[in-house]
Design a protein around this nucleic acid. Sequence first.
DNA 1: AACCCGGGCGACCATCGGACGCTGGTGCC
DNA 2: GGCACCAGCGTCCGATGGTCGCCCGGGTT
Lengths: 232, 232
Amino acid sequence: RRENTLILSDSVAPISALNLNTKEPILCHSQVRTSALLSLSEHSSDSEDRRPGKKKQKRKRPQEPGEEGEDRPREHPFIVTEPGELARGKKNGLDYLFDLYEQCGRFLQEVQYLSKERGEKCPMKVNNQVFRHAKHAGASYINKPKMRHYVHCYALHCLNVEHSNHLRKIYKDQGENVGAWRQACYFPLIEMARECGWDIEGMFNRNEKLRIWYVPTRLRQLCHLEKSKECE
Amino acid sequence: RRENTLILSDSVAPISALNLNTKEPILCHSQVRTSALLSLSEHSSDSEDRRPGKKKQKRKRPQEPGEEGEDRPREHPFIVTEPGELARGKKNGLDYLFDLYEQCGRFLQEVQYLSKERGEKCPMKVNNQVFRHAKHAGASYINKPKMRHYVHCYALHCLNVEHSNHLRKIYKDQGENVGAWRQACYFPLIEMARECGWDIEGMFNRNEKLRIWYVPTRLRQLCHLEKSKECE
DNA sequence: AACCCGGGCGACCATCGGACGCTGGTGCC
DNA sequence: GGCACCAGCGTCCGATGGTCGCCCGGGTT
């Protein structure tokens, strides 16, 4: 037996390694116009002392004049576009947004492959490591806050494209901004969750594409709230 | 539609709640004697500057004389016992150790039930929250470092009781201490992992009882090491 | 009683998942 | 050009998974 040749210290050996692999090309853009208002739903302000004893957050220094920060310009904002609609002007369309989620999926696969190679633990979800990998790989337009912000929109897209497309059409035609469209995406999902016995976790896990995304806290909470209303 | 009555702020509402539920009774104990030596395997010291730039860890104050710390006495150490063997003296047996894992499983179920009730995210594994719950529930003899320390021993017990029992008998008869037995538990698992195409993660997940425990880092590393030896 | 072996578990740490809100890009007038 | 809107994402934070090694219980001499 070769077994007794193994080193058995429980201390974890220092494993380094920096991965800067694959490049992922930026794909498409798109555009639309704006106009009026029509709010299908309320948003913001939960009343009752929100953020009670919250500490003041320090913010970054206001960029010293003679600084050498590379200072990548921020991405163009998203606008509500119909499926297939190409964005023009300094805007990005929703097809591009959803493609970002697919790219993250591919970056996750790479991270999974690498961690298996190295005998490290293999992430099942898009986590910090994946965002770091994406950045190293040159996809600097991908970042955690953005991706987490729109997860439920992507979820609707994955679980019911027709409904998702329909919503995009309506909000585009009404000239709603991205924020309003984003809020509106919650409701069809809540309805679907109801039909699934309120098992959003399971709803996500059952879908090939969605499985790799954490269920957003807000979506879980909205489902919980609706569920309790239903039972009262 | 009731949808437009929902509050849509993305800010997370302050959800509190403290759970101090159920009591879990202490179950059994056991015992054996000690004696000689026979090392089936090497342990400790991975050579090469282990813990490179590690910061000094501060340790707790040495207990002021007039202190009011409740200071629960530590649990009796484990000794290697045969299956069914009752420990005597100030020792605990391995049946008791394994029962601790089953208790943790039950605490996890409670935590899962509660988090579903509250619409919070539902842990799939024994995590900090579960250990906290166990403590609140009065099972102060359960703690994270201990449980994590022996996970692979429990794994062997779950995946091949016969082999586990056999190993216990041998190590007991040889008068080996718990540390030696614990080290020895790695090897059968590595062998089983080999037969599973080195998918320890899957091996754990396929077993009802084991599924809720994280694969110990050291076990994953040992498998990785053996795997690379095999392919060289 | 004194000693020493060995292991329980308090406490620490890097990093995580998650979120806020400042900053500045953008379209409109 | 100036202004107001709004959303991208740098940055922060509590808590997590994971571990080390101090301290002391316990058996032996």
